[in-house]
């Protein structure tokens, strides 16, 4: 940890300065997290009067539950699709804007809108466009010979939340890709061009390798986004349905705990999710350390 050479003395004042942050962290983060760990070993009785210790039963019944394993699979498909879609589209836009000289500011300004839009609102916008009876995109799909009904068809519903989630995230990726592209020296392009490398070859042999730190960083960010921040997209549109088709791990923890009042199971799911976050954070920081030496 980097340190200052010149410091002030005393410990009362700094303790006072740290107090608000630490108090909030303790009351609203650490206490509930500890509570979640405790609850995950208990099961409340049907009337909510008492609870009894059940050991690892909440965990074992989760891992034996077809619904839970299905939501694991759904989350993996969903996160993979959102990440790939977001990365490909935003990289294409950023590469195109990077080629421009005069109008790039205008395009950038128009491209970063969706980041400001809440995931829940983004979900509702796409939900409307895909509405089976009046939605414009659903209409185009019908004209093209494809039937669309995300209210009945699980695959359609999953595609809907993937598209809406990726749309919201493209602008974020775009900003980072554009910054990465603009930091690649022109002289590299020019040298390669003189040696006879065309734009496509240059993109894959020069641009993409130099962009790989940004790419890895965005992969982690997008996976975290897809896992956690897309709750609003799902809840405001499909609410996990039809059936369980769009129930991700986070949505299931919410639905089981908050809607079905199944606290023990929801707490066990929270603990598992926390482990996922810890793993992702470790990956992120290891990668950032590597990037420093890059």
């Amino acid at each position: 940890m980097a340190e200052k050479r010149v410091v002030f003395s005393g410990w009362g004042f700094p303790a006072l300065l740290l107090l608000p942050q630490l108090a909030i962290t303790f009351i609203f983060f650490i206490l509930p997290a500890a509570q979640a760990v405790r609850q995950s070993f208990f099961r409340a009785d049907a009337f909510g009067f008492g609870e009894r210790f059940v050991g690892l039963a909440n965990y074992t019944s989760l891992l034996a539950s077809a619904d839970y394993l299905q939501s694991f699979v759904t989350t993996l498909i969903f996160s993979l699709a959102v990440t790939v879609l977001t990365l490909v589209i935003s990289l294409a836009f950023a590469a195109a804007v990077d080629r421009l000289i005069r109008t790039s500011g205008l395009y950038t300004a128009l491209m970063i809108w969706p980041y400001a839009i809440a995931p829940a609102i983004a979900g509702v916008l796409w939900w409307f466009m895909f509405d089976p009876s009046i939605g414009i995109v659903a209409y185009w799909l019908r004209v093209g010979g494809l039937s669309w009904n995300h209210l009945l068809d699980g695959t359609d519903a999953l595609i809907l939340v993937i598209v809406a989630s990726a749309w919201r995230q493209v602008s974020y990726n775009f900003i980072f890709f554009l910054a990465g592209l603009q930091s690649i020296p022109r002289s590299l392009h020019e040298a390669a061009a003189i040696d006879g490398a065309g734009p496509v070859k240059r993109f894959f042999t020069i641009v993409l390798p130099l962009l790989s730190p940004t790419l890895f960083f965005l992969i982690v960010i997008d996976v975290v986004y897809a896992f956690f921040d897309t709750f609003g997209v799902i809840d405001a549109t499909t609410a996990g349905g039809p059936g369980q088709a769009t129930t991700t791990l986070v949505y299931k923890a919410y639905a089981d705990g908050f809607l079905s009042q199944n606290f023990g199971s929801s707490a066990a799911q929270s603990v598992i999710l926390t482990l996922v976050v810890v793993a992702l954070t470790v990956v992120q920081f290891r990668f950032i350390e590597r990037r420093v030496h890059y």
């Binding site: 979640a36 609850q39 956690f228 986070v250 705990g257 908050f258 606290f263 929801s266 929270s270 976050v277």
Partner: peptide, 11 residues
């Protein structure tokens, strides 16, 4: 490491 989404009920 503890976003709201992972500790919904206890919070």
């Amino acid at each position: 490491m503890l976003p709201v989404e992972v500790r919904i009920v206890p919070t």
